[in-house]
Amino acid sequence: MTILRSIALFVVAALCEIGGAWLVWQGVREHRGWLWAGLGVLALGAYGFVATLQPDAHFGRILAAYGGVFVAGSLAWGVVMDGYRPDRYDIIGALVCLAGVAVIMYAPRG
């Protein structure tokens, strides 16, 4: 149950951070306005709070593992929201990152 909770929190964190950055991008680079950018800033702030809910108490471990989630999540976001088509190296890289997340977060520690 703890692993499933942790994975769910990583997904929520990714939605907040990647979504927030995308909203800022849309607001500024795509000229959609400051409302979009402001909503992005709020989502980015929410990401910081979501990360604190992880069951592991080590900040460095959580943020290092989240880096892998961010890489894979960013590619997935690009596919869904921007029509990006990852090549095989994008996919392999994302899988390597997710394998790193699994080792960092869920390897048995004695």
Rank of each mutant, 00 (worst) to 15 (best):
S6V: 04
G27I: 06
V11S: 13
G40W: 00
G40C: 09
Q54H: 13
L98H: 08
A13L: 07
A43M: 14
V103N: 00
A94H: 06
G67H: 06
R29I: 04
R85V: 05
I3C: 05
G19E: 10
V50E: 11
L63F: 10
V101N: 05
Y47Q: 13
Q54V: 08
D87K: 11
M81L: 09
L63T: 07
R109V: 10
Y47N: 15
G38V: 04
V69K: 10
G93A: 06
I92L: 11
Y106I: 00
I18V: 10
A46S: 13
Y47L: 08
G48L: 12
V12F: 01
L35W: 09
Y106D: 08
W22H: 14
A13H: 01
G33N: 12
Q54S: 00
F10M: 06
V41F: 15
A76L: 15
A46K: 01
A57S: 13
I7Q: 03
A57F: 04
G73P: 01
A8H: 05
I92A: 13
F59Y: 15
V24K: 03
I3E: 11
I3S: 10
G110E: 03
R5Y: 07
V41C: 11
F10D: 09
D90T: 10
A51D: 02
G33S: 08
C16M: 15
Q26S: 09
V96P: 00
Q26L: 13
V11N: 00
W36V: 02
W22D: 01
G48S: 14
E17K: 08
L95R: 06
L53V: 03
G68Q: 09
W36C: 02
W22M: 05
C97W: 01
A76E: 03
A94L: 07
G68S: 10
I62G: 02
P86D: 06
R109P: 00
R29A: 08
L53Y: 07
G40D: 12
P86Q: 07
A14Q: 14
I92V: 09
A76F: 14
V79F: 00
L9M: 03
L15N: 09
A99E: 05
W77E: 12
R85K: 11
G19K: 06
G110L: 12
S6P: 00
F59E: 00
L35E: 11
H58L: 09
F49Y: 13
G110T: 13
W22C: 02
V101F: 11
L23K: 02
G78C: 06
G100L: 05
A57E: 10
C97P: 10
G60T: 01
M81C: 10
A43F: 15
G40A: 13
G38D: 13
G78D: 13
F10R: 12
V41N: 03
A46M: 05
M81S: 07
Y106N: 09
V24G: 11
V96E: 01
A8W: 12
C97M: 13
L63Q: 06
H31Y: 07
G20D: 08
V50A: 08
V80Q: 04
H58T: 11
H31V: 04
I7R: 06
A21L: 07
Y89Q: 09
G68Y: 03
V41T: 12
G83M: 14
G48Q: 11
I91Y: 06
V12Q: 04
W25V: 02
Q26V: 04
F70G: 00
G73N: 14
V96K: 05
W34C: 01
